[in-house]
Nucleic acid binder design. Structure first.
Length: 891
RNA sequence: GGGGGAUUAGCUCAGUUGGCUAGAGCACCUGCUUUGCAAGCAGGGGGUCGUCGGUUCGACUCCGACAUCCUCCA
């Protein structure tokens, strides 16, 4: 039996023998494509070739591509692991031909693609012919699409006609979007059922019918049309082949298994999980078996995505990773009864398994495991919190007859505390409750509607002014150029209208590699239009503006905001110097994990396992500043990627296949990086470099915030001004920090002394008041206007009378009222004996509100035995005392 | 980008219509007790209640902005 590694290798070897170049898998995380967060098909990294934006350096290419699918019509995250053949992360084997009308012999089309598919499957992989079916596009009159007779004829050379099935537009016609390159495809299906089953039901009837044992393994797409906005099809001059074969399914067929999880791609992980949790996987439909499959699947998605540079987070792509990871935790927590971090323990095994295919995981295995562990621990804490909250909710409802947990409560748990709904249901059932599921769904829908409404963007069609333009970025050399609009479109978001423009030649740098997009001005016939931002869409440079020139076709002068660009370049070059310095000081394990470069500062995230010490940061700063003073010229060169790597260039994540790269060299022995950004001419332009802050952003990831150039100057001078102000405030002491410490300590001591003195004064006042006790209506009464410094002191004084009054002989009941003028405002405190409250309904807050507050023009309240009041009028304090006294006498 | 929640002692958290003299447990310090496993008793220190504004006689509490963290949705 062939191992998965052999099967993968035979695929690649086979296409090498057919003149293909093998390219590495693109990262699973996608940059510069607003429509896509993750690579979800083998063709993603070649999109620009199909769209005609770019020309491929090789006509024939093959690879195995890491893909991730978590949503879409055929792949819902919640379904993965429930069945035996859907995955979040999978490998797509593919072979491509990029047609070139100028050199048709370099590529190939249907004839070769079909013949080679057949050869590989039958001669190399030995899959029996009588288990295979192929489908061919039947045509679609409504869409004016012809039947793919060409593919049909090619297949007839190899396979019995009864095994060639016709397929509908849904299954056998492939389109990237509503417009653009498209074409018919032909799929190869394999029937893996037993002979008895195959005799009973004809395989042909099960093709494309979601049968778990009759599965599609290979799709060959023939891109031959371009669909226009009006729906019509134009034949493409350059025809392409785009194929994809899921490795996991292929291996399952070759190894004769009924489940992808029984192949050697997954059995290692499952065995390790069995050993850790002490339970057995039995390949069945039970929830425990689902849990094993979920872990085996999700581990791959999480590990490879983190290795490609995407950390779990609460937005966008990072959030997808977090969700996958949490789903895995949920399953082992609930169904394998394992309450500790588990996934991270599996990372080394997976890394070793894929060491030769996707070495990036093995190279960062420690880092990935650390990130996963941290994330697991965080979620387990969240679960604990949720469990506590659930207990509260249920004990509040315990008395109710229905034992129904309201949907709003379940949603609150989910939405605010991150507590998964299925776990809520599980625990509710264990406690004899049910969850109002429809109520939950309704709340969820409300949230979705709200979010969607807030982000609704209405994008109109591109208005194309120039066909097949020469779009070019000229901003490396100049900051101003004559140009014109090539196409534009209107965007509506949150009731605001804005415009996106594509220019023929543009000096505007589009946000990329952490460097922010340029801003500036477009001059058109005396009109000035502000460019608010510049961003990339695939390889298009899109300018964001708030209006459109009155004549869109008029020539333009495009001018970049020079000072902002300059300050940004300073920070970009500083980032390279910093990166190199970190590797020199901390070690070569330092790898870039994220970067932000703008006019005001730079932010650099990198992998490192300990806090960077003061000494290390100083050393980094010193090294960068030394390189600045050396005034090293910044050399930028285009060269083949291999040559750049030989030079020691740090290959950053986010690089796709493509031969020529741009390399930024600041002293070949110091810093060599692949980079598309803009830079200063020589390091001396940075002037000075200063780290402002260092901290952690995630497990094993540190962040440095720093400034250079004018921003550094401004930062230092601001710090200096502050320091001078402090120094002056402290009367220029010889040792500033000591003086400040002494001052703080002295201040605390004085405060304490003052408090003591005030307390003593209050004690004296208290003694004095206790000698002035009168008896009113059989109650010991103190009523006095006093002089104290604060409302708190008055309250304390009044409260302290309690112990003295309680000790008076023969007078078990007491009442005290004190009034004071505090900084021009009236303050009153009233103390009532507990028994007095009970027997005569003399509640302090009531007295305060009804009898005291009106006299001082204010309000008040408190507890039954002690209440306070405040007011603006201090002229009736004596009357307050009299009023309370009269009230006591009357009761 | 849009919601929800949180921020109180070194740590984990209470604090119910605005007015309890800002609290508990753990940790810390002192003393007592005790030769034993997460010891007991008594006493004590420690707080700009995230920041800044506002409302009010009075704000930990209400309102607004900001910051940080958690969480869901897009």
């Amino acid at each position: 039996m062939m191992t998965s590694a052999e099967i993968r290798k035979k695929f690649l070897d086979f296409f090498v023998s057919k003149g293909h170049t093998i390219v590495p898998s693109a990262p699973i995380v996608v940059k510069n494509d607003p429509t896509l967060k993750f690579t979800n098909a083998g063709m993603n990294q070649f999109k620009d070739y199909f769209l005609g934006n770019k020309k491929s350096p090789h006509a024939r290419v093959a690879d195995t591509q890491k893909c991730l699918r978590v949503s879409g019509k055929h792949n819902d995250l919640e379904e993965v692991g429930v069945d035996t053949y859907h995955h979040t992360m999978f490998e797509m084997l593919g072979n491509w031909s990029f047609g070139d009308p100028a050199n048709p012999a370099a590529g190939y089309f249907k004839k070769e693609a079909i013949a080679w598919s057949w050869e590989l499957l039958t001669a190399v992989y030995d899959i029996p012919e009588d288990r295979m079916y192929v489908t061919v596009f039947e045509g679609d009159e409504a869409n004016k699409l012809p039947r793919d007779t060409e593919a049909y004829e090619e297949w007839k050379k190899w396979i019995a006609p009864k095994r060639i099935l016709l397929g509908s537009k849904k299954d056998n016609f492939w389109e990237m979007g509503d417009t653009g390159p498209c074409g018919p495809c032909t799929e190869i299906h394999v029937d893996c059922r037993s002979d008895a089953e195959r005799d009973a039901v004809a395989g042909a009837t099960l093709v494309n019918n979601d049968h778990p044992q009759v599965i599609e393994i290979w799709n060959n797409v023939f891109i031959q049309f371009n669909r226009l906005k009006d729906g019509s099809l134009q034949p493409l001059p350059a025809k392409h082949v785009d194929t994809g074969m899921g490795l996991e399914r292929l291996v399952r067929v070759m190894q004769g298994k009924h489940s992808n999880y029984d192949t050697d791609l997954f059995t290692g992980t499952i065995a390790r999980v069995e050993a850790i949790v002490g339970k057995k996987y039995s390949a069945g439909d039970g929830i425990q078996d689902v849990a094993f499959r979920v872990l085996a699947d999700h581990l791959r998605a999480i590990s490879f995505t983190i290795a490609d540079g995407q950390l779990p987070s609460n937005t966008e792509a990072g959030y997808v990773i977090r969700r996958i990871l949490r789903r895995a935790v949920r399953y082992y927590y609930s169904y394998l009864d394992y309450k500790k971090p588990l996934l991270f323990q599996l990372v080394p095994l997976l890394a070793a398994q894929f060491k030769t295919v996707f070495p990036e995981l093995d190279q960062q295995a420690d880092f990935v495991a650390k990130v996963v562990r941290e994330e697991e621990e965080a979620f387990l804490r969240t679960l604990e919190k949720g469990l506590r909250r659930m207990d509260d909710l249920m004990s509040a409802l315990r008395g109710s007859a229905a034992k129904l947990l309201p949907g709003s409560a379940a949603f609150e748990l989910y939405d605010t505390y991150g507590f998964p709904i299925d776990l809520t249901g599980l625990i509710a059932r264990e406690n004899g409750f049910t969850v109002d599921q429809p109520g939950f769904e309704a709340e969820m829908q409300k949230q979705k509607d709200r979010s969607r409404a807030a982000t609704a963007i209405d994008t109109e069609d591109w208005m194309v002014l120039v066909d097949n333009p020469l779009v070019e970025f000229v901003g490396y050399e100049m900051l101003e150029t004559n140009t014109q609009i090539v196409k534009y479109r209107k965007i509506k978001a949150k009731g605001k209208e804005s415009w996106q423009l594509v220019l023929e030649a543009t000096p505007f740098y589009a946000e990329s590699g952490g460097q922010v997009g340029d801003t500036g001005i477009l001059h058109s016939n005396g009109e000035m239009i502000s460019v608010l931002d510049t961003r990339k869409e695939h390889d298009l440079i899109v300018h964001f503006t708030d209006k459109l020139p009155s004549d869109p076709e008029a020539p333009l002068i495009a001018t970049v905001d020079r000072s902002k660009r300059k300050a940004t370049e300073v920070h970009h070059s500083a980032t390279h110097l910093l990166h190199a310095a970190l590797r020199k000081v901390l070690g070569t394990h330092v790898a870039q994990k994220g970067s932000l470069v703008n006019a005001g500062e730079l932010r650099f995230d990198f992998s490192h396992f300990a806090k960077t010490t003061e000494e290390e940061l100083s050393a980094v700063e010193a090294l960068v500043n030394e390189k600045i003073r050396e005034n090293i010229p910044v050399v930028i060169r285009q060269m083949p990627k291999d040559e750049a790597l030989k030079l020691g260039a740090m290959a950053l994540f986010g690089e796709k296949y493509g031969d020529v790269v741009r390399v930024v060299i600041i002293d070949p022995d110091y810093s060599v990086e692949l980079c598309g950004g803009t830079h200063v001419g020589a390091t001396g332009e940075l002037g000075y470099f200063k780290i402002r802050h260092e901290g952690a952003v995630a497990a094993g990831v540190r962040r440095i915030e720093a400034v250079s150039g004018p921003a550094a100057e401004a930062f230092l001078s601001e710090q200096f001004i502050q320091l001078r102000a402090v120094r002056e405030a402290l009367k220029n002491p010889p040792e500033l920090s000591r003086a400040a410490e002494t001052l703080v300590a002295e201040n605390a001591e004085l405060k304490k002394k003052l408090e003591k003195a005030e307390a003593k004064q209050l004690a004296q006042l208290r003694q004095q008041l206790l000698t002035q006790v009168q008896t009113v209506g059989g109650v010991a009464f103190i009523g006095e206007v006093v002089e104290v410094g604060s409302v708190d002191a008055l309250k304390k004084l009044c409260f302290d009378l309690k112990s003295g009054l309680a000790m008076l002989p023969n007078t078990p009941l007491f009442l005290a009222v004190l009034a004071a003028n505090i900084e021009g405002k009236a303050a009153v405190a009233l103390l009532v004996d507990e028994q007095l409250v009970a027997t005569r309904q003399l509640e302090a807050p009531a007295i305060i509100k009804q009898h005291v507050a009106p006299l001082i023009k204010g309000g008040g309240g408190g507890q039954k035995t002690l209440a306070t009041a405040g007011g603006q009028d201090t002229s009736h304090l004596a009357e307050v005392i009299a009023a309370v006294r009269n009230l006591l006498a009357a009761k």
